[in-house]
Amino acid sequence: MKPTDPAITWLEEKPLGLTERLYLPLFFQGLSTTARHMVSRKVTVNYPEVRPTIGNPLIYRGVHRLNRDDAGRVKCVACFLCATACPAHCIDIVATESPWPDREKYPESFTIDELRCIFCGMCEEACPVDAIELTSLLDLTGKSREEMIFDKEKLLSVYDMTKDAEPMKSKTLAAGGMATFGPAPGSPAAGAGGHH
């Protein structure tokens, strides 16, 4: 969308009203927020003795996983869009021609440097085939830097480990009646989802 697009509505900030200009009403409004938090329920927990509860796994940004398709193959098509979107340059992909007839290319190697990652979730947003997702696994530890560089097998194993607790987000969203992007791989006819 270009900035000149007529569909964009540009809003102006409202000028300050009398209450805003008087200062004191807003001062007490702010102070009341502080006071309310002093008496409200605590949200911090004694980690690691107490595990925090993940509110919505769909939007939580933890350890990455590489999803598998219905045939158990890596879903990734090696388009490099996650590596392009990544602001920390932590994704390294080597693409090659895929051995399957319905797929053009696939990642020969796919590594994420979890230490370099800033868990912004841009890779997940950029992925056109829902292959990379951030799980709600939050405690990520390792004994060496090398151990924290996750390769394709490791990322696929994260999927195998978490797929039951956290099904693929696209499926969860589709079940909730939300629109999905593009057809499922391997089924060219399944193009019901609109291409926006």
Binding site: D5, A7, R103, P183, P188, G191, H195
Partner: peptide, 15 residues
């Protein structure tokens, strides 16, 4: 143009 008037579905090109 921004909007599409046909139902366009991505597919794999023949090689």
């Amino acid at each position: 143009q921004a909007e599409r008037r046909t139902d366009l579905n991505p597919f794999h090109s023949r090689r």
